[in-house]
Amino acid sequence: METINYQNFRIDAENICVDYNGKVALYDANLKLKPGQICGLVGMNGAGKTTFFNALTGFVNISKGKIRINGESVRSAQKDQTIAYVPQNEGIDSQFPISVWDVVMMGRYGSMNIFRCPRESDVQAVKDAIERVDLTDHLSTPIGNLSGGQRKRTFLARAIAQRASILLLDEPFSGVDIRTEKLISELFIQFKNEGKTILLSTHDMIHVREFCDLVLLINKTVVAYGETSEVFTPENITTTFGGISPDFLFGPES
């Protein structure tokens, strides 16, 4: 029965633990996501959101538990370009001498030969991806000259060019302009229709209500997980944020 279940889940993380030199960052965390689902990952700074992402991409090793991506190991998910990671704007060196085109092309590296020579299909994929995020006017612009929103869209385009079926987005809405926010939310609907699975971390509670079918509240381990309407309650949020009342987080009217 378990093997049949694997086929249905894009992401299947079971009781995973991650520790850095003996310091526990995440323990007994579970997550099951199907194609076309959008899940919000909510927690305080240091609650293990980035660690969770890192475990799913294989950037850190888990010390316990099991991760299946489309029923396979993380290693083969890497080889198959299954997962795309869209970093936080703060997570990248914006002064790196590299253009929008080059960043998006990096989405294709995993499926190129060892010299990373772009084939025609790669060039086309990059062009299409850049068009979808509306940056065609900025192909050769260095990323240092972009606005925060444009930079975010560049990395989204990289994920699109990669043709990944799972997207992990670290704070996709932080520090972006209205136009980018609108474009991202449109893309989310398209991704959903394409059957992609999205896991996004966010500080903004309104975005969770707006976009996420499911929500995963974590504080070193899973506090609550399920349908947003059921799980995203003031009580759960208070627990997740270590006793801070939701009034403080939402404003008094909600």
């Binding site: 294989g58 950037f59 990248i92 010299f115």
Partner: peptide
Amino acid sequence: RKDLMLYCFDPRHAKTVGI
């Protein structure tokens, strides 16, 4: 050349796509 550039720029992405 290109892999090293990617490694310097965004090692997390490199790892994610199996490099």
